[in-house]
Every structure is written in C-alpha cells, then in structure tokens.
C-alpha cells in the first residue's frame, strides 16, 4: 500500500474511534459524494469486525442527482447502516425557510436550517463530515474537532487549540462538535485511495452524455431545479468533479470513464475542485459565511 495513503488512513481511523469513544450520539453526515463515501469506507475499517456505531444522516435538498440517491440506498444496504434523512422540502413546507427566487436560486443555503433541525431533533452531539482543508481557504482554518455553539455557529476567532494528537471533545449542554477525519487529505489523495481500495462511486463521477447549458463560463446540468434564462441546451460528454445540490454543481467536459483517467485529469487540471461550485463564487467569503451560520 502507498505509504502516504496509509498514514492518512491510520490518522482518520484514529479520529473516527475518538468520536465513538468521546461522544454519546455521533452521526456521519452523508452527502453521496466521494468524500463522504470515503468516510463510510474508513468507518467500516475503524470498527471492524463490528458495524460502525453511528447512523448516516443525509440532508436531502430534493434537488439531487437521481444517481446519488440510488447509490446512497445501495450503500446503506450493503454496509447495514441506519439512514436518517433530513428533508429541505419539509423545512420549506413548515415555513422554516423560504425557497430562493431568481436566476441563481438554489437550495444549497437552505440545507443549513434542515441540518441544524435534524441535529437538534436527534440530539446528535457530534457530526462527522467529509470536509478537507485543501478545498477552500476558510476550510483550511478548521480544526479536526470543531465546536459549534447552541445555534450551530462556528466561531473562527475562538477555536480551541488542537495540539499533537489530542482531540478535546468535551462540550457543554447544547453545544455540538463537527468532526473532520479527512481534514488532511487532498482531492488527489481521495482519488488515489478510491483507486487503491477499489471503491464504488455514483455513476455521475464518470463520463456520460447529458443535456447541459453554459452560464458564467461554467457548464450546468439542464434540470427542472434551475431557473434557466433562455440559455441553449445541448448534449455533451461530461462528468462531475464534486457532487452537491443539482442547482449549484457544475459539470466538467470529460471522457474519463475510469478512476485512472480521472486522476490524470485532476493532475492536469488548472482549476480547483471548488471552482466548479457556484455556491463558493458568490463572494470571496462565501464559504466562511455559510460555515459561520452552521453549514457543513
């Protein structure tokens, strides 16, 4: 096994076991993307031969790629995990949030409310997420155990020191912790690991023909969830580099149909993974603002 990946894996397993030991009601936030699929794989390793001792939680925007939902259900069944779904549509119906309007309307930001609701309803004290520090510069600032206040907010100016391997998961009533076991992995590490471990992925990560349109220099999937503005729809070979809500995830032109080709493509790429996420382009501090409010 590749030495570097081995080191990353050992560290992630250590972190996942700390979560199980330090918290009463942990959960793994499962988006259906490659990072959370990697987390599930690591969790299986960490507690083998037992099942991992936490449920998977999916925050469903209702604007998903069909393929990720099919994959989610297949994986849940395969590993015998419990699945808890928090629905953005329910939050909208309960008037807790209002649907965005206009050309750039997306349910991505609404997820935060549903997420915080789901955490509170299930009394989760730790939520494991697949965020990586190389993704974005606000994420580069995040601790592995990141404490959130009563309102789910992140206070970047008052983060706990995190020294050596000591993870402090002690919290007061009402607080909870977000845990990021793959903080130190890069996009390329994740893909190399997917290859090494021969992991299954949703089909949208590989090339397929799809109806798309161009907006602001990015290619978006044509879908009923996007308010299109007379843009031309055309069919072409694309794949997705990151998987989020359908309304904010851009595709990349690609004919890569296997993991090796994807790795070659990423190595040669001149734009970052997050460059294909419209939610981050809204402003320089877009990610930080969402994190402050309690986003993943």
């Amino acid at each position: 096994m590749n030495n570097h990946l081995k080191t990353l894996e050992e560290e992630s397993i250590y972190i996942l076991r700390e979560v199980a030991a330090q918290f009463e009601r942990p959960a793994l936030l499962f988006s259906g993307g490659k990072d959370s699929i990697t987390l599930v794989h690591l969790a299986r390793k960490a507690f083998f031969p037992a099942k991992f001792p936490f449920p998977l939680v999916h925050i469903d925007t209702g604007h998903n790629f069909e393929e990720t939902i099919v994959f989610r259900d297949w994986l849940v069944n395969k590993v015998g995990a419990q699945l808890i779904v928090g629905s953005v549509q329910d939050s909208i119906d309960q008037k807790k949030v209002a649907e965005e309007t206009g050309k750039y309307a997306s349910r991505n930001a609404l997820q935060t409310v549903t997420l915080l609701d789901t955490i509170e309803r299930n009394k989760f004290d730790a939520c494991i997420g697949g965020a990586r520090r190389d993704e974005e510069k606000a994420r580069a600032k995040e601790r592995i155990f990141s404490v959130r206040d009563d309102f789910g907010q992140w206070d970047p100016k008052r983060q706990r020191p995190e020294i050596w391997h000591h993870l402090n998961g002690m919290i007061n009533f009402g607080e909870n912790v977000r845990v990021f076991p793959i903080s130190n992995w890069t996009e390329l590490d994740v893909w190399s690991y997917i290859k090494q471990e021969n992991m299954d992925l949703p089909s949208i990560y590989f090339t397929h023909k799809r109806n798309v349109f161009e907006r602001d220099g990015l290619i978006f999937p044509a879908s009923p969830y996007i308010n299109m503005d007379g843009e031309d729809i055309f069919e072409t070979d694309v794949r997705f580099r990151t998987v989020g809500d359908m309304s904010c995830t851009a595709a990349v032109l690609s004919t890569a149909d296997n993991v090796d080709d994807i790795i070659t493509e990423i190595k040669a790429s001149t734009i970052s993974e997050r460059g294909a996420r419209f939610d981050d382009k809204r402003s320089e501090a877009a990610m930080e603002k969402r994190k402050l409010a309690g986003y993943f």
Partner: peptide, 16 residues
C-alpha cells in the same frame, strides 16, 4: 482564509 484576517491584513488562526 477568514474575512477578519483579510480586513486586518493579519493571520489570526492556523491555515493548513
């Protein structure tokens, strides 16, 4: 990576 850092032109917390 933090807005407060860019506004003040200083580093407040560790970036990896």
């Amino acid at each position: 990576g933090l807005s407060a850092e860019r506004e003040q032109g200083i580093t407040i917390d560790v970036a990896h």
